[in-house]
Nucleic acid binder design. Structure first.
Length: 590
RNA sequence: GGGGUCGUAGUUAAGUUGGUUAUAACGCCGGCCUGUCACGCCGGAGGGCGUGGGUUCAAGUCCCAUCGGCCCCGCCA
């Protein structure tokens, strides 16, 4: 009888057994993935994190072991000892990495039994509430395990890259101070200071700037961040950033080093070489051409501005929108598989999500258009539009007329929608693009004031400084986002390192001196003690992992994710706490 | 805060215009089977349709409310 675990140690992982082990005795541990009991011989597919190997129990070669094997059910935890042998001719299983061989078991210990699992690990479409409730079982599925292995490699590649380039990883506090601007904070009540709260960091922004002021010069951290906002397929309330800050640099230094990071990550994790440098696109170009500041540049289908052509149009709808300051833009679908009337209606419904009141379309023919708006347009206008969008027979043009924001939102998203529907890109295409020259601020109708587009510590362009008080929305920020396949995977900026400019920015943002002092006085103080010019960036590790694994949901790259209501179905968080706990914190539920 | 969608055995699904004891596959349990790999064959046990109201002679099917999963808008970098 073997003494598994203590003296008889596992010799290798299941899927590592191969033809070179033939004749050797191996010791394996894992889960009973599937059992095929032929009355005589019993086959078990033994599974661990590497995969599956077939182990065989034969009554002729091991009567007792065979009897014991009858007890094995799905997901029992097993230790087996046996000799590796080639499978009989014709019995190989090419679907299995270990399909050439099998292990004839001479010794078996059932290390643990298992209840019948609530779902099969083979099935793809188990409802997500069941999966999340039994997440520890869901995580036995190879597909999700692979995602987490890749995530781990990504983190390792990141640490290696930064360590090799003279960066220091510094941890910053999770219990910190609530700051205005940006997302809603998660709050943590203080027991010692009644009525006071910590906030979990939305990002370590201020601390990494302080580290620059301290002279660390090159900092990075792989760190959890918390934002109490509504969830999406690519957004969780707690998520992980690759956070970076550097001193004595410009945008180009950051961009170069980060391109190196991306190249290293893709080389190490996917064995893919990225062409460097990545293209750059100004914010306004991105909006005008793609309707979004996170454009997917894997395909064309760009927006074309028709406002000037249609300004004097007899078509009242277009003319009036333009007269009121709106725009008319279009995207053109090349000689495409024709879209049915139903599909065109669905597209109209689709853009209505983004506030578009309609979606005009035109099928381009050799001499005219088939279009509901054809009769409203002059021959000259139709000709000009055809020319402007480079239309030829068979193409379809889509038009939206509205205020710029609605036009860009609806056409920008329609563009993505069409590309996905018509498969205008390959699944493994990778298109990086830097978006630069963001506006520093934009006017918020809701708050009746200017708000930072990035955050209030972002440096304006030097040459735009004079406009800070006169036309704040014209001032460009020294900010940059990295976009991959239409997903914003990172963003950062050169920071303000001079107190006078920081104060000016606060003032334009409508933050009084007292407010600024009470919210982040510590940063303002620090800026007075020799703050070096500095800047940084942060990448969304979860989103990057999503793209690299092809995951459709951020939940598939996080071991224990939360539902759309920010609940953990496994642990049942959030949950009520005892009245004693509340009293200790001087809290009352209202 | 809003829009959409889904919720029927352990799982995945079907369930006609409301009409007898609610279907199927897989899984599970028992029996048989020495080469399978989604093993096979025979037999069996599981649910009252997310929850609570209502309409009706009659509700899984209709109505209202509510809970939960997912997608999206707003929000969020």
């Amino acid at each position: 009888m073997s003494n598994f675990l203590t003296t008889d140690k596992r010799t290798q992982y299941c899927a590592q057994v191969n033809i070179s082990d033939m004749g050797n005795e191996v010791i394996l541990m894992g889960w009973a993935h599937r059992r095929r009991d032929h009355g005589g011989v019993i086959f078990i597919d033994l599974r661990d994190r590497t995969g599956i190997v077939q182990v065989v129990f034969n009554p002729e070669t091991g009567k007792d072991v065979h009897t014991e094997a009858h007890k094995i059910r799905s997901e029992f935890v097993l230790a087996v000892k046996g000799v590796v042998r080639k499978r009989p001719a014709g019995m190989e299983n090419p679907a299995l990495k270990t399909g050439e061989i099998e292990v004839l078991v001479s010794d078996l210990e059932i290390l643990n039994e298992s209840k019948t699992p609530p779902f099969s690990f083979d099935e793809e479409d188990i409802s997500e509430n069941i999966r999340l409730k039994y997440r520890y079982l869901d995580l036995r599925r190879p597909a999700i395990q692979q995602n987490l292995f890749l995530r781990s490699k990504l983190a390792a590649a990141t640490r290696n890259y930064f360590n090799d380039n003279g960066f220091i990883e510094v941890e910053t506090p999770f219990l910190t101070k609530s700051t205005p601007e940006g997302a809603r904070d998660y709050l943590v009540p203080s027991r010692i200071s009644k009525g006071m709260f910590y906030a979990l960091p939305q990002s370590p922004q201020l601390f990494k700037q302080l580290l620059m002021i301290s002279g660390f010069d090159r900092y990075y951290q792989i760190v959890k961040c918390f934002r109490d906002e509504d969830l999406r397929a690519d957004r969780q309330p707690e998520f992980t950033q690759i956070d970076v800050e550097m001193s004595f640099i410009t945008e180009n230094d950051i961009i170069n080093i980060m391109e190196g990071l991306m190249a290293e990550i893709f080389r190490h994790c996917l064995n893919r070489e990225l062409p460097l440098p990545f293209p750059r696109l100004g914010y306004f170009d991105a909006i005008n051409r793609y309707g979004k500041d996170n454009p997917d540049v894997r395909f064309g289908l760009e927006l074309t501005d028709l406002t000037n052509i249609l300004r004097e149009s007899n078509f009242k709808l277009f003319r009036e929108v333009i007269a009121k300051g709106g725009v008319v833009k279009a995207i053109k679908l090349d000689n495409t598989s024709t879209l049915s009337r139903k599909e065109l209606d669905d597209l109209r419904d689709y853009v209505s999500i983004y506030g578009a009141k309609g979606l005009a379309w035109a099928r381009v023919n050799a001499a005219d258009w088939t279009s509901p708006i054809y009769k409203f347009l002059s021959t000259e206008e139709v000709g000009n539009i055809n020319k402007q969008v480079s239309a030829s027979a068979g193409d379809i043009i889509f038009f939206v007329a509205d205020v710029p924001r609605v036009v860009h939102d609806s056409l920008g998203n329609l563009r993505l929608h069409l590309a996905k529907k018509l498969k205008l890109y390959k699944p493994d295409d990778l298109s990086f693009v830097w978006i630069t020259e963001f506006p520093l601020m934009e006017y918020s109708e809701a708050e009746k004031r200017y708000v930072s587009m990035h955050h209030p510590f972002t440096s304006p362009y030097n040459e735009d400084l004079s406009g800070l008080t006169t036309s704040p929305d014209k001032v460009r920020a020294r900010a940059y986002d990295l976009v991959l396949n239409g997903s914003e995977i990172g963003g950062g900026s050169i920071r303000i390192h001079r107190k006078d400019i920081q104060n000016q920015v606060f003032s334009v943002l409508g933050l009084s001196d007292e407010e600024a002092r009470s919210k982040f006085g510590f940063l303002l103080d620090a800026l007075e003690y020799g703050a070096p010019p500095h800047g940084g960036i942060a990448f969304g590790l979860d989103r990057l992992t999503m793209i690299m694994t092809g995951a459709e949901s951020i939940r598939d790259v996080i071991a224990f994710p939360k539902t759309q209501k920010a609940a953990c179905l496994l642990s049942d968080a959030p949950s009520k706490v005892s009245i004693e706990q509340l009293m200790e914190l001087s809290l009352k539920i209202v």
